[in-house]
Nucleic acid binder design. Sequence first.
DNA 1: CGGATTTGACCCGCGC
DNA 2: GCGCGGGTCAAATCCG
Length: 177
Amino acid sequence: MSEESRRLTRELDTILADRSSYQLRATTASPAPSNAAAMEVVLDTAAGVTAEPRPKVRTVRVRAEPPDAEANVVKDGYQWRKYGQKVTRDNPYPRAYFRCAYAPSCPVKKKVQRCAEDSSVLVAQYEGEHNHAQSEFVSDASTSQAGTSHSLPCSISIDSLGRTITLGLTKPRVGIQ
DNA sequence: CGGATTTGACCCGCGC
DNA sequence: GCGCGGGTCAAATCCG
């Protein structure tokens, strides 16, 4: 388990190094007593090796805690503007569509949907990447480690498939919603 | 008063 | 060519 954990940690490092990947903010400076959540970084399955090796979509599964279980809100440091909501056929829960509200030119889109089987798990799908600074806070691993050794202060567990990394991280509370 | 959220309708693409 | 499903837009509403 430990060696696999290290392997995935290294994979995380790869993800963090990739500019087109989702930047995990392992926040140590921001004390967030209440908004703790387990975040899973899922390597895109839809993006096979056939079509596009480097897809623009990142799927992040967030386990919402009981207090947050009602809202489909995945706080990641950016401001999102909800522009639509749909009920898909294969999912009894509605899917919310978000766009970046901080910069009009920001092409990033976000879809948040609950897990069909576990309503406490939110599945956020990010498309594109941000072209601007973060709205509230910036504290990613590369800031402090200069991209050398990303020792994420998170508890990492590995899914049986080996493609899902579950991080126990704390999200800073931003008084937006 | 301003801005964000909500909800229904419309439009587009894909499959049959 | 039609139907289905998904995604986006836009106006009204509500909250701060």
